[in-house]
């Protein structure tokens, strides 16, 4: 159903999303001088990640039990400064094996 109405929806959606990303990225050309703002912007990514990860990680798999196991493994490896892919793989493997065990137990 790629009629003109669908194209218009997609165009508007894409344009709004792009402008939100692009305008600040292009306009902020200089290093910000304000110490407060620099400090704040330094913390923004960590704050965003904290809010996005918790509690959402608990609902990222089909059961909270497998999510908790995955979370535990991810924490274990993250605390040991392992790379992104190792931590992510450990979380997936933990969740997968847990769900496998749960499906066999039932």
């Amino acid at each position: 159903m790629l009629d003109s109405k669908m194209l218009l929806y997609i165009l508007v959606m894409a344009l709004v999303t792009y402008l939100i990303r692009m305008i600040p990225f292009v306009l902020c050309r200089k290093k910000i001088q304000s110490k407060f703002l620099r400090n704040m912007l330094y913390y923004v990514p960590y704050a965003v990640l904290g809010a996005m990860t918790i509690p959402a990680i608990l609902y990222s798999t089909s059961s909270m039990i497998s999510a908790v196991v995955g979370l535990g493994l991810a924490l274990f490896f993250a605390f040991r400064n392992k790379s992104l892919i190792v931590v992510a793989a450990a979380a997936c493997a933990g969740a997968f094996v847990t769900e496998l065990i749960m499906s066999l137990a039932i």
Partner: peptide, 9 residues
């Protein structure tokens, strides 16, 4: 859960 594991890392 992969994405969240990455965030934690």
């Amino acid at each position: 859960i992969a994405i969240y594991g990455m965030f934690l890392a």
